[in-house]
Design a protein around this nucleic acid. Structure first.
Lengths: 194, 194, 194, 194
DNA sequence: TATGAATGAGCCTTCATTCAT
DNA sequence: GATGAATGAAGGCTCATTCAT
């Protein structure tokens, strides 16, 4: 019986190693060493090196989405949900620097991860965002003519870029502090009020 | 005398090959073949394979930023400049599918390109965006309390994600059509008007 | 567990391949093939191709010096030791033609092996020769004003050149036969006795 | 018409470059640069890179041998000739450090130069040495039973090793000073006089 | 299950040599 | 003769993956 422990050990080791050396420079043997096992053992739990990254991505993003989904469920309306979602997005990344590094930097490996495997989980997150927006449109707190797809992508892109800048900038400020500013901006727009 | 043509030939060939096979799968010999030269010739113009990607990035993004800068200079006010910038961002990518693929997908190679070389050119683009926002704040068309840095990242992130979605979605719709929707969203916000 | 056998297998294969094709023409794959292993396996035991040559040199010369040292220890006086040393120098090379080829010809690769790695072992051999000469000077069998350093180099150079000539001349005569002639020459000099 | 000047320029440049970087690290372009010409021009005067080394060797050793031959011709007897030969051998090398480096270190490139081309010139030098020894045997100043071939090799090997040690030891002492000590040693032998 | 020694495909890069000008 | 841009063969090395133990 495959030990679920080992699986997790490997994923966690991989997050640390990818964060430290980058995906391409990381050798399977490094991950095995970090996990305290032999490199052959990796292949009892994963198909390939890429599979580790994909699985890592799926599980972490899956958890991320589940956390967000659960958190916003408790919020009373779309506005509160949106603010909570943005805040949580940043909090989760801020909480785990190695994971943030991996998600914002290492996961972006050209062809391999922009297409295919990763798209399902990101799509799921997009759905969560979109559903909040739709709820807001329906309830009238958001503009009735809001192009939800575009807004979803824009909001995700904005949050993602904020997070990337924060990681690349060596996390010199509190990411969560940016959450409300971002929320205001999206809700109220850049334009001065007449 | 070193031909300046060859440099461009190689860059152009690289864009096509990277778009087609991805950066990592692309062999230097493929680029040479696509450029109609011998592989050794590549090394008369570039240090390494990575140097091709970095140079490609610098030149293309450099041109991109220069184009945007010139275009918005002709616009009367910050509002027009912002709309023009968004529209141009999308038009440039839409005009050259191979380049769009490379910029949105292949350039993102983890460590190597998020940090270092690329940052200067992207930073330059960030400055262009920020200057438009600052101008708007000063002239009163944008909110006087706009957090310009955050807004810059958010806008860039939003445009970038729109472009990435469009590339990954096999360009099934007109990217430029999203420009005005995105502009409205940023200017007016998501919130319903009271 | 790393097999100590493999290390030796590779060294022995390398001696044969270097003797046959020369160091530069020898491909790592040739050595691997000769050793009956895959080329990647070489790199579990050696850092680089050059490392094989250096290690080969160290081990073979180290063994050579140890053999000589042990053999002369059993000789009664400096005179006997010197004759034994010369004889053994030639016998060892004569015994293993491939090794002789490698030591006399392939090891001499310009910069790489005249300086650095090899110097320690050769220096060790020089010390053995010098100690015999010093012993002879002290015991009065050699001239009291013998310039030991010069004599050491001269003797080594003479033996080395004899060996090289023998290897290059396709070993058409018995090298060991030259030992006593060389010994006499060094001991008695060229000059006619008055 | 091939300019003899260019030929010499290239040879001289090659001596300096080989001495500085070693034969293998030296690029043909380096030699061309050092000679102040284009690399293609090298091939109007030499067949291959190896040809430069071989020609360099032939010409330098040829000159060396000619010089020695002429110098000893003026000496009255075999004894004086031998001493003069040894002294000159060292003086010539001492006079031109770059050439000494190349002859003692870089010329020794395994297979390529121990066999073939170089052997003729070294053979010529061996003949000069042998003829002095033979003359000495005939005239009775050397032992009548001297094994001339062996003595020739031994003497050459001794001088060569002295020179190599001097080059490797960064020429920290005067090589010529060793000449008489070496001469005495060969003439009188190591053995104490009874 | 776990190990880790062994495998071997894969490719970037160098640089001696050529040849059109 | 002279140039130097262009050529392209060649191979050392890495490391993901396998498999006998």
């Amino acid at each position: 019986m495959p030990e679920p422990d080992k699986h997790q050990q490997i994923i966690d080791a991989a997050v640390r190693v990818f964060a430290r050396r980058g995906y391409h420079s990381a050798r399977v043997a490094d991950i095995a060493h970090e996990a305290g096992i032999a490199s052959g053992t990796i292949y009892l739990y994963f198909e390939t090196k890429g599979d580790i990254l994909v699985t890592l991505f799926r599980e972490k993003i899956g958890g991320f989405v589940a956390d967000v989904r659960k958190a916003i469920a408790g919020e009373p309306d779309a506005l509160a949900k949106l603010r909570r979602l943005i805040r949580l997005h940043f909090q989760i990344l801020e909480r785990d620097p190695a994971l943030a590094e991996v998600i914002q930097v290492e996961l972006r490996q050209g062809q391999k991860f922009f297409r295919g495997a990763s798209s399902a989980e990101v799509g799921d997150y997009f759905n969560v965002i979109a559903s909040v927006l739709e709820e807001g449109v329906a309830s009238g707190v958001f503009r009735h003519d809001l192009p939800v797809k575009t807004a979803t992508r824009a909001l995700f892109g904005a949050m993602d870029q904020m997070a990337t800048s924060w990681v690349l900038g060596k996390r010199t400020y509190k990411l969560a502090d940016a959450a409300d500013a971002l929320g205001d901006m999206f809700l109220l727009g850049l334009a001065a009020k007449p």
